[in-house]
């Protein structure tokens, strides 16, 4: 009885050996998993507004002013803090007032410290032919900490004093966010 058992062991071992002998994983380098990068690019709406003459108040140094601020809490999320590599902020103004404006857009920290500032002059337009400004601010990898440190966006629009003629000042904006996960 001993001999057949030996044969069985030999038989099973032989086939397992043959299978294992010819089975292998080759021509691959699994270490490449460390090089894997997910590079999504997101396009997101940011802020927008439509200003009329009634929104401008206060007369300081002969200038009228309209200002507002919003939190952008997503700037504090992990994917921004750890994986955002660069960003482009695109602002499109449409001005049908017959007067010039200056827009100052700031990225602010929790304590309202200015992290990044964008100044955009807006030329005068007319109701029939509004002036259009398409401005893109590029924040590259060296500057990306400005966004990571920010949590708010403020907008301040100023113009010279004096009576308004009918018109509107519109802003549309979007952000292109380039990630690496």
């Amino acid at each position: 009885m001993k001999k057949p058992l030996v044969k069985i062991k030999f038989f099973s071992a032989f086939f397992l050996f043959i299978l294992l002998l010819f089975s292998c994983v080759k021509d691959v380098d699994l270490g490449q998993y460390e090089e894997i990068v997910l590079p999504p690019q997101a396009s997101l709406d940011l802020i927008f507004f439509n200003l009329t003459s009634e929104d401008f108040t206060g007369e300081q140094n002969n200038r009228l002013r309209a200002a507002d601020v919003t939190r952008l809490d997503f700037l504090d999320d992990d994917y921004i803090q750890n994986n955002l590599k660069s960003a482009n902020l695109n602002f499109r103004f449409t001005n049908s007032f017959q007067r010039e404006f200056v827009a100052v857009i700031k990225l602010l920290s929790e304590g309202n410290g200015v992290q990044h500032e964008i100044l955009i002059p807006i030329p005068a337009g007319t109701t029939d032919s509004p002036a259009k400004v398409n401005y893109t601010d590029i924040i590259n990898e060296d500057q990306i900490n400005k966004i990571r440190r920010s949590i708010k966006m403020s907008v301040e629009i100023t113009t010279h004093s004096g009576p308004f003629v009918d018109g509107e000042l519109q802003l549309q904006s979007r952000g292109f966010f380039y990630f690496e996960f």
Partner: peptide, 22 residues
């Protein structure tokens, strides 16, 4: 659906735009 955050320029008492959006 969303178009982003609309600023209303109300003066001193700015609404919590982000909280309302969320």
């Amino acid at each position: 659906q969303t178009d982003g955050i609309q600023l209303l320029f109300p003066g001193n008492n700015a609404p919590s735009y982000w909280d309302e959006w969320e």
